[in-house]
Design a binder for these strands. Structure first.
Lengths: 205, 205
DNA sequence: GCAGTTATCGGACACGATGACTGATAATTT
DNA sequence: AAATTATCAGTCATCGTGTCCGATAACTGC
């Protein structure tokens, strides 16, 4: 027995309505009344499926998570030197972001909410954490706590992503990815290296 | 004629109540009723001073802005090589954050609000922008847009700050600052350098 | 197709937060 | 001491939330 078609239609409509409305007014300002009116479903129907506005959001994020982890696994499986495999999912992320620009602006951009962004942050932190674990399994980081490095990378990633989304820059996903990697990889390398006394003389290994 | 002492008392009480409540429940969950009850202030009094919850918040942020810009100006005025002047305000920021841990957890941490964090982000972006302008006045960045670099640094800074605040890590401001700089400075250097083909051979200048 | 299941609808309800308004009271300033 | 004015308590209309119900429609499995 498949899932009732009515259920799919309602859920889809609600998800789409949420995204559209958050882009217009911001997450906090969106009311459930707004959502059900935009989705053209009855009020009770909403509560039949989701407990609250946040519940609806959480549900929508599940798909994204699955998609990104799949991309990451694929990237990790491929061959290449550390500089290529490290953060291997970033290009896929930027490409995915371009395809679903609207959703991503809600996830990382100015119009997002603390709740949404925290969810996204946690999701990316998982990815980065696994990625770093695959690159440098041991924990002999050069005095820099692993968790700090993870948060650093996630923050940088979300910032670059938000920067790209909010401005109308015509950069391609590959170009943005290049920017991100050129900035981030040196930081990761520096984290794994020993102490650095000066900037001008870096990476003598 | 100075400002009425009753006004100061009311405003102070409201500010303190807001900070305390946000730390307990998160910004969104705090109601005006909560605030006036905690502050022991009449409901109408709140509306006599502030238009809304956000208005109260904005008012509180003004002081912080003044304090941080002052710190930055002082740091920029001092002498030293690029590695020292660059992001010279960061240590002051971390020290300030330790002194006002409660407030900063609202500003950058998990319990903060999108509104507050966006304000904080804009504030830091101004500081970083001026800082980078002082270091590298021209705009011949190595293919990396200046605005992207600014957002990158701000995101990294807020992430490290949030990481430090949210965990109970006993690190001193100086230690956190070292972590932040060791990660960020290489990224900035890489941004100003020419194209890099590989990670292992970077900074050949 | 038909019968049984079930999602949806729309209305009603209680509840809590908001923001504005009032007159009386108390504190402060000059 | 007198004039000013911030504060208080209370009231009011409005809005969003979350829940419940019966009636109606749509869907599924046979």
């Amino acid at each position: 027995m498949k899932e009732d078609r009515r259920i799919q239609r309602s859920r889809d409509a609600l998800h789409q309505a949420l995204v559209a409305l958050v882009l217009e007014k911001g997450y906090e300002a969106v009311t459930i009344k707004d959502i059900v009116e935009r989705a053209n479903v009855g009020r009770s129907t909403f509560y039949a499926h989701y407990k609250s506005k946040e519940d609806l959001l959480t549900n929508g994020l599940a798909e994204l998570r699955a998609l990104l982890t799949a991309h990451q696994q694929a990237a990790l499986a491929e061959e290449g030197d550390v500089g290529q495999r490290c953060l291997g999912f970033s290009l896929a992320l930027f490409e995915h972001a371009q395809s679903f620009r609207d959703i991503y602006r809600v996830l990382v951009g100015e119009r997002g909410s603390a709740i949404v962004m925290n969810r996204m942050r946690a999701l990316l932190a998982d990815l980065v954490s696994q990625d770093l674990a695959a690159i440098a399994p041991a924990a002999n980081d050069g005095q820099i706590p692993r968790s700090a490095l993870i948060q650093f990378v996630v923050g940088a990633l979300m910032s670059v992503l938000a920067w790209w989304m909010d401005r109308k820059s015509r950069l391609s996903p590959a170009e943005v990815d290049t920017i991100f990697r050129r900035l981030t990889i040196p930081a990761i390398v520096a984290a794994f290296d020993g102490p650095i006394s000066n900037i001008d003389s870096n990476a003598e290994r």
